[in-house]
Nucleic acid binder design. Structure first.
Length: 128
RNA sequence: CAAGCAAAUUGGCUUGUCGCUUUUGUUCAUUUAGUUCAAAAGAGGAAAGUCCGGGCAGCACAGAGCACCAUACUUCCUAACGGGAAGGAUGCAUUCAUUUGUAGACAGAUAGUGCCACAGAAAUAGGUAGCCUUGAUGUAACCAUCAGGGUCAUAGUGAAAAGGCGAGGUAAGAGCUCACCGUCCUAGAUAGUGAUAUCAGGAGCUAGGUAAACCUUAUGGGCUGAAAGAUCAUGUAAACUGAGGUUUGAGGGCUGCUCGCCCAACUCAGAGGGUAGAUCGAUUGAUUCCGUUCGCGAGGUCGGAACUAGAUAAAUGACAAGCUUCCAUCUUUUGGUGGAAACAGAACCCGGCUUAUAGAUUUGCUUUUUUA
């Protein structure tokens, strides 16, 4: 199965990010906070996602990098969950994943947490 | 041999699976963007703090003064520096020894102002006690009282009390005079590029500290930073360019103030702006390595070779196994079990400084123990 998560999956456009925070929904399940939205614009990939680790909880850049790499790795292995949710629709997910924990997680526990959050995502529906 | 301190160097490795960024080739589609597969490359000594200096870029590069800021022994290195090298003087420690080591924003306290608790007669200046002495009065005299003069030798202080010590000298004293030491001065001599050193001559010698207090002197400094700035692409501004041109001044500009300078209503012509995005800026450079030669050294000359991250909501990772090192514990030992892998992540690029840093290696110094 394809487990790639390249550059096209990266959420970079400012307007889309602002849209998530303005109109999107959120799922809070410690230590993960997921904000998401649906868009009908053309995206180069099946969804786009951004990762964030607050500077408040991790003062050192090394630690923030490590957590973000772990987050990206887990999502890469589990991206099928997101793709299944939007198979039936023209719209695509834009996601913003924030790690709210205060300690560096290990891989296995983080995978359980993220799978739990992703499964709460509703299935996408076409706009009327 | 062990421990400590200082300096320098180094800053884990291998395999498998799944992935990320860039470049090159390649497949598909094609105006591009994209996409398949393969190969190559992919964090540091501090990438950090953003403390100095420079390159580069822009700001309308006439300028002057004041203010403000920085620096402060000498010579040299460097693109430059507040950095570095070598040296000088001073303090401290050490030594037979200016012998060795070490420290520091090491211009000026004789331009001026301020501050210095407590103590002390007195703190930058006077005369409290004391000593010596003159006059008056009292007294036989010693002496006492009053008024004046000289003086810092004596004084339970203090960080500091009019260079120190000895001799002469004096009514008592005093660099008042002298020897030695100290201090200051010199278009002096010698040595040195120089800071300065040694010697010579002169001055009786005007004074404690603080300039990381104000300040003075000398030298230097325009401001803003890569979110700078440039280009592209639906098209039309009050912003830009050129020509003409009014007002004497409201407003604006390249930092704070003053002066000075410039722009500026409007008309005509030209050219296109903003938001989002993309590309350039952006990695070939005061580059790295090797050799050569000059220099005590920091470094410089010459020759050869190499290309060594280029991301941008920001790549360089995850999992598994093994090795290596360290720690704890069990064990007589071999070894077993468990844990850990320092500090830390490029963001335009260089040169420095500062701070963080487990373990390993090397060198030097100090101390202790053991053996001979």
């Amino acid at each position: 199965m394809n487990q790639r998560l390249g550059k096209s999956y990266k959420l970079t456009r400012k307007t889309l990010i602002n849209n998530i925070f303005a109109k999107g929904s959120k799922i809070n399940s410690y230590p993960i906070l997921l904000r998401y939205s649906l868009t009908s614009e053309h995206l180069p990939a099946s969804f786009q996602i951004a990762f964030s680790v607050p500077k408040r909880n991790f003062k050192k850049a090394v630690d923030r990098n490590k957590v973000k790499r772990l987050l990206r790795e887990v999502v890469r292995k589990n991206k099928g969950i997101i793709e299944k949710k939007s198979l039936q629709s023209e719209n695509k997910f834009t996601l913003f994943l924030i790690y709210t924990g205060k300690e560096i997680p290990d891989y296995d526990n983080l995978e359980i947490s993220i799978q739990r959050v992703l499964k709460k995502l509703p299935s996408a529906k076409d706009n009327d």
